[in-house]
Design a protein around this nucleic acid. Structure first.
Lengths: 162, 162
DNA sequence: GTCAATGCAAAAGATTTGCATACGG
DNA sequence: CCGTATGCAAATCTTTTGCATTGAC
Protein backbone atom coordinates (compact mmCIF):
# COMPACT_ATOMS: atom_id res chain seq x y z
CA UNK A 1 0.00 0.00 0.00
CA UNK A 2 1.21 3.47 -0.87
CA UNK A 3 2.47 5.21 2.22
CA UNK A 4 2.59 8.70 0.77
CA UNK A 5 -0.73 9.30 -0.92
CA UNK A 6 -4.20 8.43 0.25
CA UNK A 7 -5.69 5.20 -0.95
CA UNK A 8 -8.86 5.26 -2.96
CA UNK A 9 -10.61 3.63 -0.04
CA UNK A 10 -9.60 6.50 2.21
CA UNK A 11 -10.74 9.06 -0.32
CA UNK A 12 -14.00 7.19 -0.73
CA UNK A 13 -14.58 7.66 2.98
CA UNK A 14 -14.02 11.36 2.48
CA UNK A 15 -16.70 11.26 -0.18
CA UNK A 16 -19.09 9.44 2.14
CA UNK A 17 -18.47 12.03 4.82
CA UNK A 18 -19.04 14.78 2.33
CA UNK A 19 -22.37 13.31 1.31
CA UNK A 20 -23.49 12.87 4.89
CA UNK A 21 -22.42 16.35 5.89
CA UNK A 22 -24.56 17.76 3.11
CA UNK A 23 -27.53 15.64 4.07
CA UNK A 24 -27.16 13.61 0.89
CA UNK A 25 -27.51 9.86 0.87
CA UNK A 26 -24.71 7.39 0.43
CA UNK A 27 -26.04 5.18 -2.35
CA UNK A 28 -24.43 2.28 -4.15
CA UNK A 29 -24.73 4.17 -7.41
CA UNK A 30 -22.86 7.19 -6.09
CA UNK A 31 -20.11 5.01 -4.72
CA UNK A 32 -19.85 3.09 -7.98
CA UNK A 33 -19.54 6.38 -9.85
CA UNK A 34 -16.90 7.57 -7.40
CA UNK A 35 -14.92 4.35 -7.79
CA UNK A 36 -15.16 4.48 -11.56
CA UNK A 37 -13.85 8.03 -11.53
CA UNK A 38 -10.91 7.13 -9.33
CA UNK A 39 -10.06 4.04 -11.34
CA UNK A 40 -9.69 6.23 -14.37
CA UNK A 41 -6.09 7.40 -14.71
CA UNK A 42 -6.91 10.15 -17.18
CA UNK A 43 -9.52 12.59 -18.34
CA UNK A 44 -12.92 11.06 -18.94
CA UNK A 45 -16.34 12.11 -20.22
CA UNK A 46 -19.71 11.56 -18.60
CA UNK A 47 -20.29 8.76 -21.06
CA UNK A 48 -16.97 7.08 -20.18
CA UNK A 49 -17.91 7.33 -16.56
CA UNK A 50 -21.34 5.80 -17.14
CA UNK A 51 -19.78 2.85 -18.91
CA UNK A 52 -17.23 2.21 -16.17
CA UNK A 53 -19.70 2.78 -13.37
CA UNK A 54 -21.94 0.15 -14.87
CA UNK A 55 -19.13 -2.38 -14.76
CA UNK A 56 -19.15 -1.89 -11.00
CA UNK A 57 -22.90 -1.54 -10.52
CA UNK A 58 -24.97 -2.19 -13.61
CA UNK A 59 -27.95 -0.38 -12.17
CA UNK A 60 -26.28 3.00 -12.66
CA UNK A 61 -28.16 5.14 -15.13
CA UNK A 62 -26.99 8.00 -17.27
CA UNK A 63 -29.16 10.44 -15.33
CA UNK A 64 -27.54 9.43 -12.06
CA UNK A 65 -24.09 9.97 -13.50
CA UNK A 66 -25.06 13.45 -14.63
CA UNK A 67 -26.60 14.15 -11.25
CA UNK A 68 -23.54 12.86 -9.40
CA UNK A 69 -20.99 14.88 -11.35
CA UNK A 70 -21.82 18.26 -9.81
CA UNK A 71 -21.71 16.68 -6.37
CA UNK A 72 -18.31 15.17 -6.98
CA UNK A 73 -17.09 18.42 -8.42
CA UNK A 74 -18.37 20.40 -5.49
CA UNK A 75 -16.73 18.01 -3.08
CA UNK A 76 -13.44 18.77 -4.78
CA UNK A 77 -12.80 15.10 -5.41
CA UNK A 78 -13.07 15.44 -9.13
CA UNK A 79 -12.33 18.39 -11.35
CA UNK A 80 -14.21 19.57 -14.41
CA UNK A 81 -12.04 20.24 -17.43
CA UNK A 82 -13.84 22.08 -20.17
CA UNK A 83 -11.66 22.36 -23.25
CA UNK A 84 -14.34 23.86 -25.45
CA UNK A 85 -15.73 20.76 -27.06
CA UNK A 86 -19.40 20.02 -26.98
CA UNK A 87 -18.98 17.67 -24.07
CA UNK A 88 -17.03 18.15 -20.84
CA UNK A 89 -14.12 16.20 -19.43
CA UNK A 90 -13.55 15.31 -15.80
CA UNK A 91 -10.70 13.84 -13.83
CA UNK A 92 -10.01 12.53 -10.37
CA UNK A 93 -8.42 15.25 -8.29
CA UNK A 94 -5.81 12.99 -6.72
CA UNK A 95 -3.29 15.39 -5.29
CA UNK A 96 -3.23 18.59 -7.26
CA UNK A 97 -2.18 21.39 -5.00
CA UNK A 98 -1.07 23.95 -7.55
CA UNK A 99 -3.16 25.37 -10.34
CA UNK A 100 -3.21 23.21 -13.44
CA UNK A 101 -3.20 24.43 -17.02
CA UNK A 102 -4.12 22.21 -19.93
CA UNK A 103 -2.32 21.67 -23.17
CA UNK A 104 -4.64 20.11 -25.71
CA UNK A 105 -3.02 18.43 -28.68
CA UNK A 106 -5.24 18.51 -31.73
CA UNK A 107 -3.32 15.68 -33.35
CA UNK A 108 -2.79 13.35 -30.41
CA UNK A 109 -6.24 14.28 -29.15
CA UNK A 110 -4.76 14.20 -25.70
CA UNK A 111 -4.98 16.60 -22.77
CA UNK A 112 -1.83 17.28 -20.75
CA UNK A 113 -2.05 18.77 -17.28
CA UNK A 114 0.70 21.24 -16.48
CA UNK A 115 1.51 23.02 -13.23
CA UNK A 116 0.97 26.75 -13.54
CA UNK A 117 1.44 28.06 -10.01
CA UNK A 118 1.70 31.72 -11.04
CA UNK A 119 -1.92 31.65 -12.16
CA UNK A 120 -3.10 32.09 -8.61
CA UNK A 121 -1.43 35.45 -8.55
CA UNK A 122 -2.37 36.43 -12.05
CA UNK A 123 -6.07 35.88 -11.70
CA UNK A 124 -6.23 37.74 -8.47
CA UNK A 125 -4.36 40.72 -9.87
CA UNK A 126 -6.62 41.06 -12.87
CA UNK A 127 -9.81 40.53 -10.93
CA UNK A 128 -8.75 43.02 -8.28
CA UNK A 129 -8.42 45.72 -10.91
CA UNK A 130 -12.04 45.12 -11.85
CA UNK A 131 -13.15 44.89 -8.23
CA UNK A 132 -14.00 41.23 -8.59
CA UNK A 133 -13.20 38.14 -6.57
CA UNK A 134 -11.73 35.18 -8.36
CA UNK A 135 -13.96 32.14 -8.42
CA UNK A 136 -12.02 29.94 -10.80
CA UNK A 137 -9.56 30.17 -13.62
CA UNK A 138 -8.51 28.32 -16.68
CA UNK A 139 -5.51 28.46 -18.87
CA UNK A 140 -5.50 26.33 -21.98
CA UNK A 141 -3.09 25.98 -24.83
CA UNK A 142 -4.26 24.25 -27.96
CA UNK A 143 -1.38 22.87 -29.96
CA UNK A 144 -0.35 20.68 -32.84
CA UNK A 145 2.05 17.78 -32.77
CA UNK A 146 4.69 18.38 -35.41
CA UNK A 147 6.29 15.07 -34.74
CA UNK A 148 3.12 13.27 -35.72
CA UNK A 149 2.76 15.30 -38.88
CA UNK A 150 6.39 15.13 -39.91
CA UNK A 151 7.62 11.75 -38.71
CA UNK A 152 4.20 10.16 -38.90
CA UNK A 153 4.25 9.00 -35.31
CA UNK A 154 4.01 10.70 -31.95
CA UNK A 155 6.21 9.26 -29.20
CA UNK A 156 4.20 10.82 -26.48
CA UNK A 157 0.80 9.46 -27.36
CA UNK A 158 1.93 6.53 -29.48
CA UNK A 159 -0.48 7.70 -32.13
CA UNK A 160 0.35 7.14 -35.77
CA UNK A 161 -0.53 9.46 -38.62
CA UNK A 162 -3.62 8.30 -40.48
CA UNK B 1 -15.14 59.89 -39.99
CA UNK B 2 -12.58 58.32 -37.71
CA UNK B 3 -9.09 58.92 -39.05
CA UNK B 4 -7.34 56.38 -36.87
CA UNK B 5 -9.28 53.15 -37.17
CA UNK B 6 -10.81 51.56 -40.22
CA UNK B 7 -14.44 52.21 -40.90
CA UNK B 8 -16.85 49.32 -40.97
CA UNK B 9 -17.24 49.91 -44.68
CA UNK B 10 -13.52 49.44 -45.20
CA UNK B 11 -13.49 46.31 -43.13
CA UNK B 12 -16.47 45.00 -45.05
CA UNK B 13 -14.43 45.37 -48.20
CA UNK B 14 -11.74 43.29 -46.56
CA UNK B 15 -14.38 40.66 -45.91
CA UNK B 16 -15.52 40.75 -49.52
CA UNK B 17 -11.94 40.34 -50.66
CA UNK B 18 -11.49 37.45 -48.27
CA UNK B 19 -14.56 35.71 -49.65
CA UNK B 20 -13.47 36.22 -53.25
CA UNK B 21 -9.94 35.07 -52.57
CA UNK B 22 -11.28 31.83 -51.13
CA UNK B 23 -13.61 31.32 -54.07
CA UNK B 24 -16.61 31.95 -51.82
CA UNK B 25 -19.51 34.06 -52.99
CA UNK B 26 -20.34 37.52 -51.76
CA UNK B 27 -23.99 37.18 -50.81
CA UNK B 28 -26.37 39.66 -49.26
CA UNK B 29 -26.84 37.33 -46.32
CA UNK B 30 -23.13 37.12 -45.60
CA UNK B 31 -22.81 40.89 -45.75
CA UNK B 32 -25.83 41.34 -43.49
CA UNK B 33 -24.28 38.96 -40.99
CA UNK B 34 -20.98 40.79 -41.18
CA UNK B 35 -22.68 44.15 -40.64
CA UNK B 36 -24.69 42.82 -37.73
CA UNK B 37 -21.51 41.51 -36.12
CA UNK B 38 -19.73 44.84 -36.52
CA UNK B 39 -22.67 46.84 -35.26
CA UNK B 40 -22.55 44.85 -32.06
CA UNK B 41 -20.29 46.58 -29.54
CA UNK B 42 -19.97 43.57 -27.29
CA UNK B 43 -19.96 39.81 -27.15
CA UNK B 44 -22.85 38.16 -28.91
CA UNK B 45 -24.22 34.68 -29.48
CA UNK B 46 -25.24 33.06 -32.74
CA UNK B 47 -28.83 33.73 -31.82
CA UNK B 48 -28.14 37.43 -31.16
CA UNK B 49 -26.44 37.63 -34.50
CA UNK B 50 -29.34 35.98 -36.28
CA UNK B 51 -31.76 38.46 -34.79
CA UNK B 52 -29.70 41.47 -35.75
CA UNK B 53 -28.85 40.14 -39.20
CA UNK B 54 -32.53 39.75 -39.89
CA UNK B 55 -33.10 43.41 -39.11
CA UNK B 56 -30.75 44.15 -41.99
CA UNK B 57 -31.89 41.37 -44.30
CA UNK B 58 -34.89 39.42 -43.15
CA UNK B 59 -34.10 36.53 -45.44
CA UNK B 60 -31.16 35.47 -43.26
CA UNK B 61 -31.71 32.04 -41.78
CA UNK B 62 -30.27 30.46 -38.70
CA UNK B 63 -28.40 27.91 -40.80
CA UNK B 64 -26.70 30.63 -42.78
CA UNK B 65 -25.57 32.36 -39.62
CA UNK B 66 -24.06 29.14 -38.33
CA UNK B 67 -22.42 28.55 -41.70
CA UNK B 68 -21.05 32.10 -41.84
CA UNK B 69 -19.52 32.10 -38.37
CA UNK B 70 -16.59 29.79 -39.16
CA UNK B 71 -15.87 31.85 -42.28
CA UNK B 72 -15.83 35.10 -40.33
CA UNK B 73 -13.70 33.48 -37.68
CA UNK B 74 -11.25 32.14 -40.20
CA UNK B 75 -11.00 35.54 -41.85
CA UNK B 76 -9.93 36.92 -38.50
CA UNK B 77 -12.66 39.56 -38.62
CA UNK B 78 -14.51 38.07 -35.69
CA UNK B 79 -13.22 36.10 -32.76
CA UNK B 80 -14.77 33.12 -31.03
CA UNK B 81 -14.96 33.43 -27.26
CA UNK B 82 -15.85 30.18 -25.56
CA UNK B 83 -16.35 30.71 -21.86
CA UNK B 84 -17.60 27.22 -21.15
CA UNK B 85 -21.30 27.77 -21.44
CA UNK B 86 -23.38 25.58 -23.65
CA UNK B 87 -23.37 28.19 -26.39
CA UNK B 88 -20.46 30.18 -27.79
CA UNK B 89 -19.87 33.90 -27.85
CA UNK B 90 -18.35 35.90 -30.66
CA UNK B 91 -17.15 39.45 -31.06
CA UNK B 92 -15.95 41.76 -33.79
CA UNK B 93 -12.17 41.77 -33.87
CA UNK B 94 -11.85 45.49 -34.28
CA UNK B 95 -8.24 46.19 -33.39
CA UNK B 96 -6.95 43.63 -30.96
CA UNK B 97 -3.26 43.15 -31.48
CA UNK B 98 -2.25 41.60 -28.19
CA UNK B 99 -3.61 38.44 -26.71
CA UNK B 100 -6.86 38.91 -24.82
CA UNK B 101 -7.88 37.17 -21.64
CA UNK B 102 -11.45 37.12 -20.41
CA UNK B 103 -12.79 37.88 -16.99
CA UNK B 104 -16.29 36.49 -16.66
CA UNK B 105 -18.39 37.92 -13.85
CA UNK B 106 -20.96 35.42 -12.62
CA UNK B 107 -23.03 38.19 -11.03
CA UNK B 108 -22.92 40.84 -13.74
CA UNK B 109 -23.04 38.08 -16.32
CA UNK B 110 -20.60 40.16 -18.31
CA UNK B 111 -17.39 39.29 -20.12
CA UNK B 112 -14.46 41.68 -19.84
CA UNK B 113 -11.63 41.55 -22.34
CA UNK B 114 -8.21 42.16 -20.84
CA UNK B 115 -4.83 42.49 -22.51
CA UNK B 116 -2.53 39.66 -21.53
CA UNK B 117 0.51 40.09 -23.77
CA UNK B 118 2.70 37.68 -21.79
CA UNK B 119 0.50 34.80 -22.85
CA UNK B 120 2.20 34.62 -26.20
CA UNK B 121 5.39 33.74 -24.44
CA UNK B 122 3.83 31.49 -21.87
CA UNK B 123 2.00 29.24 -24.28
CA UNK B 124 5.03 28.82 -26.45
CA UNK B 125 7.22 27.89 -23.50
CA UNK B 126 4.85 25.25 -22.24
CA UNK B 127 4.14 23.79 -25.66
CA UNK B 128 7.84 23.68 -26.51
CA UNK B 129 8.49 21.49 -23.50
CA UNK B 130 6.01 19.01 -24.88
CA UNK B 131 7.32 19.34 -28.42
CA UNK B 132 4.13 20.94 -29.61
CA UNK B 133 3.34 24.05 -31.63
CA UNK B 134 0.86 26.50 -30.22
CA UNK B 135 -2.32 26.80 -32.22
CA UNK B 136 -4.37 28.96 -29.87
CA UNK B 137 -4.65 29.83 -26.21
CA UNK B 138 -7.19 30.92 -23.73
CA UNK B 139 -6.95 32.41 -20.31
CA UNK B 140 -10.15 32.95 -18.41
CA UNK B 141 -10.90 34.12 -14.93
CA UNK B 142 -14.34 33.53 -13.53
CA UNK B 143 -15.18 35.94 -10.75
CA UNK B 144 -17.86 37.29 -8.48
CA UNK B 145 -18.88 40.88 -8.05
CA UNK B 146 -18.73 41.70 -4.36
CA UNK B 147 -20.08 45.15 -4.90
CA UNK B 148 -23.26 43.72 -6.34
CA UNK B 149 -23.65 41.29 -3.48
CA UNK B 150 -22.78 43.76 -0.73
CA UNK B 151 -24.06 47.11 -1.96
CA UNK B 152 -26.79 45.61 -4.09
CA UNK B 153 -25.64 47.33 -7.23
CA UNK B 154 -22.68 47.00 -9.56
CA UNK B 155 -21.31 50.26 -10.94
CA UNK B 156 -19.55 48.54 -13.78
CA UNK B 157 -22.48 46.72 -15.27
CA UNK B 158 -25.26 48.83 -13.81
CA UNK B 159 -26.88 45.62 -12.68
CA UNK B 160 -28.90 45.59 -9.48
CA UNK B 161 -29.16 42.69 -7.08
CA UNK B 162 -32.32 40.71 -7.65
C1' DG C 1 -25.71 28.04 -67.35
C1' DT C 2 -23.33 26.10 -63.44
C1' DC C 3 -22.55 25.16 -59.01
C1' DA C 4 -22.15 27.23 -54.53
C1' DA C 5 -25.28 29.23 -51.05
C1' DT C 6 -29.60 29.45 -49.11
C1' DG C 7 -33.95 28.34 -46.24
C1' DC C 8 -36.43 25.02 -44.16
C1' DA C 9 -37.15 21.39 -41.26
C1' DA C 10 -35.39 17.45 -39.45
C1' DA C 11 -31.42 15.44 -37.10
C1' DA C 12 -27.82 15.21 -33.98
C1' DG C 13 -25.80 14.89 -29.55
C1' DA C 14 -24.81 16.20 -24.79
C1' DT C 15 -27.26 17.23 -20.82
C1' DT C 16 -31.60 17.98 -18.05
C1' DT C 17 -36.00 16.97 -16.20
C1' DG C 18 -40.80 14.93 -14.89
C1' DC C 19 -42.59 11.22 -12.80
C1' DA C 20 -43.52 6.86 -10.61
C1' DT C 21 -40.84 3.68 -7.93
C1' DA C 22 -37.13 2.09 -4.81
C1' DC C 23 -34.40 2.48 -0.86
C1' DG C 24 -31.28 4.96 2.69
C1' DG C 25 -31.39 6.88 7.34
C1' DC D 1 -41.95 5.35 7.41
C1' DC D 2 -40.49 9.59 5.23
C1' DG D 3 -38.41 11.87 1.77
C1' DT D 4 -34.40 11.65 -1.19
C1' DA D 5 -32.36 9.20 -5.14
C1' DT D 6 -33.12 6.46 -8.86
C1' DG D 7 -34.26 4.73 -13.79
C1' DC D 8 -36.59 5.60 -17.70
C1' DA D 9 -37.97 8.22 -21.39
C1' DA D 10 -39.11 12.44 -23.04
C1' DA D 11 -37.65 17.10 -23.37
C1' DT D 12 -34.22 20.78 -24.05
C1' DC D 13 -31.14 23.55 -26.42
C1' DT D 14 -27.45 24.64 -29.42
C1' DT D 15 -25.51 23.47 -33.53
C1' DT D 16 -25.38 20.61 -37.85
C1' DT D 17 -27.11 18.58 -42.00
C1' DG D 18 -30.00 16.84 -46.19
C1' DC D 19 -32.38 18.46 -49.81
C1' DA D 20 -34.77 21.19 -53.17
C1' DT D 21 -34.46 25.88 -54.75
C1' DT D 22 -32.21 30.35 -55.57
C1' DG D 23 -28.89 33.40 -57.12
C1' DA D 24 -23.75 34.82 -57.73
C1' DC D 25 -20.37 34.92 -61.17
Amino acid sequence: MDAESKTTTEIRDTFKDFLSSKGLRVTNQRLAIFDAAYEHPDHFTAEDLLERSREIDDSVSRATVYRALPILTESGLIREVDVGRDYKFYMANRNATTFQAQVICLDCDKIFEIDAPFMEWYGKTVADKLGLNVESQRLQVTARCDELQTAGICKRSGKKAS
